[in-house]
Design a protein around this nucleic acid. Sequence first.
DNA 1: ACATTATATAGATAAACGTCTATTTGTCAA
DNA 2: TTGACAAATAGACGTTTATCTATATAATGT
Lengths: 103, 103
Amino acid sequence: MKFDPVLFAKAIADDTRQRIMSECCCCWLSVNEIVEKVGFTQPTISHHLAILRDAGLVNIREEGKQTFYSLNQDHLAVCCGQVMFKFAPESETTINLKQIIQG
Amino acid sequence: MKFDPVLFAKAIADDTRQRIMSECCCCWLSVNEIVEKVGFTQPTISHHLAILRDAGLVNIREEGKQTFYSLNQDHLAVCCGQVMFKFAPESETTINLKQIIQG
DNA sequence: ACATTATATAGATAAACGTCTATTTGTCAA
DNA sequence: TTGACAAATAGACGTTTATCTATATAATGT
């Protein structure tokens, strides 16, 4: 369950995946709905969703034939925070963020 | 000067670059010092430093023959914040961060 | 001027990645 | 049980990327 900053960064380091993230940032979408919105083939979208899933960045809900995805905003925010703690420990923003989170 | 979340994510999405970032996170190092610490050839390190430079993630100081690099912690923190604002706008952490920065 | 040292750039190569088509798996309705 | 639909998986292919060796550029010391 340990945080892997390379896995996280690789997961978000692609234009198509960022478009998927934008589309299902704040709502649940089926794979087909994402396909229609993003404009690649269904296998390509499934491939990207698997990468986001492996990084823990999406919530998944199966419902009959369909599978719905939504972005896991909280985990994404945590990952960004971890990157800040690791690589920008002296930045004011990071120090303030740490105080918020820890109490 | 606009923020490009794909460029940023790609820049940090590599193990070697993250090792470089760790090494010169909080100090200035010459290219040769980074080469010794990270353990790849000098051209490989220069290649990665160029990618970090293009993403605005390093400060550069030329001094005679040598070039010193240090991680731009503030810009890194800003980029992480931008990713949070864009993809996790509803997360508590993001909302709190926004308040810190704006007020 | 020349040799030396530090860094950047060019070019080659192998591995990783993104996309596609084809197929498989699983669910539902008739 | 069959047919239709949704999603995942397999495999192929072209592009990008990370690394290396070789070379160029630039600064310093003799």
